[in-house]
Amino acid sequence: MAIIQTNNLSKVYGSGDAVVTALRDVSLTVETGEFVAVMGPSGCGKSTLLHLIGGLDRPTAGTIQLDGDDLSRLSDTRLTEVRRRKIGFVFQFFNLIPVLDAVENAALPLILDGMKLAAARATAAEWLQRVGLDGQTSHRPDQLSGGQQQRVAIARALATEPALVLADEPTGNLDSRASDEVAGLLRQVADEWQRAVLMVTHDPRIAAYADRIVFLKDGSIIDQARLNGTPLEGAQLVRDKVEAL
C-alpha cells in the first residue's frame, strides 16, 4: 500500500530573476514497510522534497498524497494535525527539548495530541525500550551520547504510530558506529514495525540500508536503485572474496 505518492511535485523559490527551481516534476511512491533513501549532491533538492512530504512546506505545483490526504490542499491546522498523527520526524540535530528527560521527549507528540500524561509516558517508555534505551529513560539530552539522543528521537517519531517516518540526515552528526546503529534501527522500523521510512542522506553506506535509493540531481530524479536480496547472498559474496585469496 502506497503511503506517499507524489505527482509531478515542483517547488520554486523566489520570483522574477531570482527564481530557483528546487524541485522539478518529482513523482515518487513509498510503500508501507519500505525504506527509501534519497541521495544527491547538496542543493539537489533532497531536503526540499522531505519538507514537502513532511508538510513543513507547500509545493508550487503537483500533489502529495499522504495516507489518503492531499497535503497540498490542507489548511495549516489540518496539516499540523497530519504532522502530529501521521508523520514521525528524525532530525540531524536530534532536536530534543533540553529541559525534558528521555521519556518526556519521546512522549511529547502524544502529549501534544492530548493523551493523558501517564499513558503517554508509558507508551514512550515502551518505545524507548524497543529502540534499545531502557536504562537512560530519566536522563536529560545532555546526559546522553549522540547515538542515544537519536534513539530517543526515533522513539519520539514512532510513539504516535505514524504511517511515515521522515529522517533528515539522521546520521549527519554521529560517528560511524552510531551511524550504523541508527541506520539499522531505521531498517528495523521498516521491517519490523512496517512503517514507510523516507531518509535523506549523503552517506552511501547509510543509504545502502534502504530498499530503494532515489538519486536526485538539480531537482529531478535521475536514477533509482532497487536493492533486493537477502543477507545470504551477501554471505556468498564474502565467501567468494575468501576464496580469491
Binding site: T80, R83, F89, I97, L108, L112, R156
Partner: peptide, 10 residues
C-alpha cells in the same frame, strides 16, 4: 520549530 514539526499548533 521542532514542536511545530511534531504537530504542535500555533
Amino acid at each position: 520549530g521542532m514542536l511545530r514539526a511534531l504537530g504542535a499548533t500555533r
